[in-house]
Design a protein around this nucleic acid. Structure first.
Lengths: 219, 219
DNA sequence: TAGATTGTTAATCGATTAACAATC
DNA sequence: TAGATTGTTAATCGATTAACAATC
C-alpha cells in the first residue's frame, strides 16, 4: 500500500541538517515563505536538488507559492527525529568529551546526557552541569540499569573497539565515534564517525594539490 | 607533456586518510606487502576502488605482487601533504579548542600550533603545552606578524563569519571550521567544515528512519 | 485568469564496479 | 614458465540536473 519507495541515500540524509539550519535562520528572520529557487541561491545548491531531496519524504510545497518556512522547518525537524528524546552517555571525559557535554543545544534538540565515564581517577566523581563523571569500570552495570540510545566515544584509539563492544552488547543502538579509528560493530548498530585527523588531512592535501600534480606531471 | 589529468574528486580525497591509517596499521604489524584485494577486504571496500583511487596519483603497485606497504604508506603520506609543516592557530580556547590543541599527533604530522585566541579574560594569558592563549583582539596584529596557514575556528556561530573575514583577509589559506554554521569566504580559501550538530542529527534520523516511513506510507 | 513554482519524469553527469590485457 | 595482481578501459550504477506538465 502507498507508493513504491526507495531507501533514502546518505547523500540526502547528510543534507537534511543543513536545510534545517537554513530554515531556522529564515524563520528567525521572519521570512514566511521561500521557493526552492531562492533557497538554492542562499545555500549554493540547485533548486532541483532541494525539490528532489524533499520529495523523498513527501510533497511539502505548494505550486506557484513555494514552501511555508515554519512548516518546512517543523517537518524537517520531525524527519530528523528531533521531536523525540534520546539518552546519551559520553565515554571519555577529557576536553573533547567535556566540550560535547557542554553543548546545551544538543539537550534542547532532545539529546539528554545521562552520564560521562572516564578512567582517570582525577576526573571520576566530578560533575559537569550536574552530570556525574563515573568510573568506566561501572559502564556495563550502568547500561544494564539505564536505557542508553547513543554512546559518544571520546577516547583514544586503543580503547575504542573494546568500548564499542561493551556499548553494543548492552543495548546501545548508535555510536558517535570520535576515536579516529574504525569500529567493528553488528550490522544493526548505527555508527557515525567524526575522524578529526582524516578531516584535517584533507586540508593539507588541498593546500598542496597543485604543487603535487606539478611534480607528478614532470615525471 | 605528461598524460591528460582530471581533477581528483573529493570522494577520493576523503578516502586517502583512511588508506593511510590502514597502511600505518599494517606497517606496525610488520606486514611487508599487500594486494588491493586483501586491503579491500580489511577496509570493506572494493579492490577496484582502491586501484582506481591510487591511480589518480600514479602506479605504485607491481603486477603479480601487490603494493609494498611501507612505500605506499610513505607515498600517501606525501600525497596528503604530511611531510610538510603548517602553522595553525585556534580561535576559541574553550573545551573544544583545548581538545584540539591537545592532540599531539597533529603536531607530529606537521601541524604546528602557534597560538590560541579567546575573548574570555579568564583564559587569556593561560598556557597550554607552552602555547599562550591571546586576546582575540590581537588576532589581526598576530596574523600580520606570523605566517599562519590554517585557522581552526572553535567559536560560537554568531562570531564565526566575522572571524573568518579576519582570517582570510590576513593571509590564512584554510579554515577548519567547527562553528556549526557555513562560512562565506573567497574562492581560493579552503574550508573544511566539521558540523557536529549535522553529524549528530544524522544519527537521530537513522534511529527513526524505519518508523518515519511506516508513518509516511500509511498516509 | 496569468504567473509562479512545485512534483516528477527524463537526461546527464560522475562515481563505482567489473573485466581483462599487460606484466611482474 | 605459471600464477598473481596491477593499471586501465568499459560497463554499470547512482546521484544530480534539466525540463515541463500539473496546479496553486
Amino acid at each position: 500500500m502507498g507508493k513504491e519507495r526507495t531507501k533514502v541515500s546518505m547523500a540526502v540524509i547528510r543534507r537534511l541538517p543543513r536545510y534545517q539550519r537554513y530554515l531556522d535562520e529564515l524563520f528567525k528572520n521572519d521570512v514566511k515563505r521561500i521557493s526552492s529557487r531562492e533557497l538554492s541561491e542562499r545555500m549554493g545548491v540547485t533548486a532541483s536538488q532541494i525539490r528532489q531531496d524533499l520529495n523523498c519524504f513527501g510533497g511539502f510545497g505548494q505550486q506557484g507559492y513555494g514552501y511555508n518556512v515554519e512548516d518546512l522547518y517543523n517537518t524537517i525537524t520531525d524527519i530528523l527525529g528531533l521531536n523525540r528524546s534520546y539518552n546519551t552517555i559520553i565515554v571519555g571525559a577529557g576536553n573533547l568529551g567535556q566540550a560535547i557535554a557542554g553543548y546545551t543545544n544538543f539537550e534542547k534538540s532532545g539529546f539528554t546526557l545521562k552520564a560521562l565515564f572516564d578512567v582517570n581517577p582525577k576526573l571520576i566523581g566530578l560533575r559537569l552541569r550536574d552530570i556525574e563523571i563515573l568510573d568506566v569500570d561501572t559502564l556495563p552495570d550502568f547500561l544494564h540499569q539505564h536505557k542508553v540510545d547513543i554512546g559518544i566515544m571520546c577516547i583514544p584509539r586503543k580503547a575504542a573497539q573494546q568500548t564499542a563492544d561493551i556499548l553494543t552488547s548492552n543495548g546501545v543502538r548508535a555510536i558517535w565515534n570520535f576515536s579516529m579509528t574504525d569500529l567493528d560493530v553488528p550490522a544493526d548498530i548505527i555508527v557515525e564517525n567524526v575522524h578529526l585527523s582524516d578531516s584535517l588531512y584533507t586540508i593539507s592535501y588541498r593546500l598542496n594539490e597543485e604543487e603535487l600534480f606539478n611534480k607528478i606531471d614532470k615525471n
